[in-house]
Design a protein around this nucleic acid. Structure first.
Lengths: 204, 204
DNA sequence: TGCGTAATAATTGGCGCCAATTTTATTGCG
DNA sequence: CGCAATAAAATTGGCGCCAATTATTACGCA
């Protein structure tokens, strides 16, 4: 069996499955299961799992295997705090760098999320949300900052399945995205920081 | 040959060797060499190298091996910028959390660095510097923030061999540490942020 | 002497294998 | 029926191996 010669590293595929709630907190990831599911060799699976351990997205227990860590409230609070620092730290550069075209593009991406929020699948919502934030963070023109932000977000599993349990939370995220676009359009750094911080700190 | 049953993961040992300038930018890390040097099996070496790739501390080139990345000025600037965001973002919690005992401890660690700066080895300087900063960041009581800070610092190889090329730069770092302790003692968040930012942005 | 080609040596990549460990099932006893 | 012990099954961990690839050396020719 040969792994589809494609696109993303296996580690990212597994990570996405975790993000989408296909593996729950505390759940063990069996190598043999992953081999089947992802059409991968054991060697590939093991390498991917090790990478995810380094990224702290999963945990390894010797002789027992790998599992999706339970995210206790304290860890979540730590992750949120670091997100606030990073994402608010990114604001000056986002506001300074955004062109009119960028703002138009962001508005389109916010709209795409809005559509997905109303009538899309969980995957749609996750994808459009990610695309919106990726485009926004890319405005910093600092790839290290972008990947650091995502490394923290991914660890906290900031994805629909864990967050958007109700239409209300979806709606709030939709509204927050619009606010973010508005603040960027107006070059309002303080306003953008506030929206982002509130967005991150909000209890879902 | 069995690896000394000990202390730190091999990846960290290799990382430190890189930090200390034992491998230069652009240099290839030969698996067979590392096996010898670190008394490790090939399996262990390969796992360690892969971990360092995930951590972006080294780069992998297929069929050719692993190498220490050259840090171009642009990448260094990105890393510095993220360090500023993170380390200045840590300031409010450092200042809020530090007890009198903490301040005394930090002053001792700053003094240890001062001694190493005057008459210690590069390793002494690296170790005492790291200990000082570790103690300071630990005051945030946010392990995620601490490890994120270090992941960025380590990528930028913020270590003596690459930074402290002259007694003058060592002296400045010594002075900066004292200033940091002073600001913490006085609960001067703005002052501490400034010292840290200047410290990071300084061209060495 | 310099260049190109072929041969040889060295290194990397990933596979298969099996020992070690853990989990599950079975059996026997009170 | 519940528990403990044993056996069997499943899973993990790391080793050895060799094919594939790259680097180096040797050779021949102009």
């Amino acid at each position: 069996m040969k792994r589809k010669e494609d696109k993303r590293p296996l580690a990212d595929e597994i990570a996405q499955a975790i993000q989408l709630g296909e593996y729950r907190s505390g759940e063990w990831l069996r190598q043999v299961d992953l081999e089947e599911r992802f059409a991968a060799t054991r060697f590939d699976v093991r390498a991917a799992l090790e990478a995810l351990v380094v990224r702290k997205e999963i945990q390894h227990v010797r002789n027992r295997g790998y599992k999706v860590p339970a995210l206790d409230p304290e860890m979540l609070a730590h992750l949120r705090e670091v997100r606030v620092i990073l994402e608010c730290g990114a604001v000056p550069q986002i506001v300074a760098n955004a062109t009119d075209e960028d703002v138009v593009r962001l508005a389109e991406l916010a709209e795409a999320f809005s559509v997905a929020a109303k009538s899309g699948t969980h995957l749609d919502q996750s994808t459009t949300n990610r695309e919106f934030h990726e485009a926004m963070h890319a405005l910093t023109a600092n790839p290290v900052l972008v990947e650091t932000i995502w490394s923290i977000r991914d660890r906290g599993r900031s994805a629909p399945f864990t967050i958007w349990r109700t239409p209300d939370t979806l709606h709030r995220s939709d509204e927050d995205h619009r606010q973010m676009v508005h603040c960027i359009r107006e070059r309002d750094a303080a306003g953008l920081s506030k929206v982002i911080e509130d967005h991150i700190r909000r209890r879902h």
